[in-house]
Amino acid sequence: MKAEARLLIFLGVFIGIMGIVYGIWSKEWGGTAMLIGTGILGVFPGLYYRWWSKRIGYRPEDRDATMEEGAGRIDTFPGSSIWPFTLGMGCWFLVLSLVFGTWFAVVGIPVVMFALAGGTAESRRGGDPAGH
């Protein structure tokens, strides 16, 4: 986790410093805001990962480990699901309603709600009953 954290913090700090230099020099606030915002977007998750790396130490994928050391449950993966497709169609209709009028939203909004509910229910049903 440490390398991951360093990567994000480095990018964030670098871009943040660039934003400060750019802001002072150019006095153009649009670009300055975008650069500094981007810097923060790198530092925040970076610090979060750093915090985790301190708590969990080295995972088998962070060090010279054999496959046996990483044996056991990896994760739970959905085999197939209709909800991404349904949600995609709902979103498509929402976007089309921006162009062709509200009629598309009348279809789109219920489909999106239905898909969100369906997908959430699927997540809660599936997976390891021990909960993770």
Partner: peptide
């Protein structure tokens, strides 16, 4: 449909 995965190695 959900698959829970275990890891196996080349030596098994």
């Amino acid at each position: 449909m959900v698959d829970t995965l275990e890891r196996t190695t080349a030596h098994e």
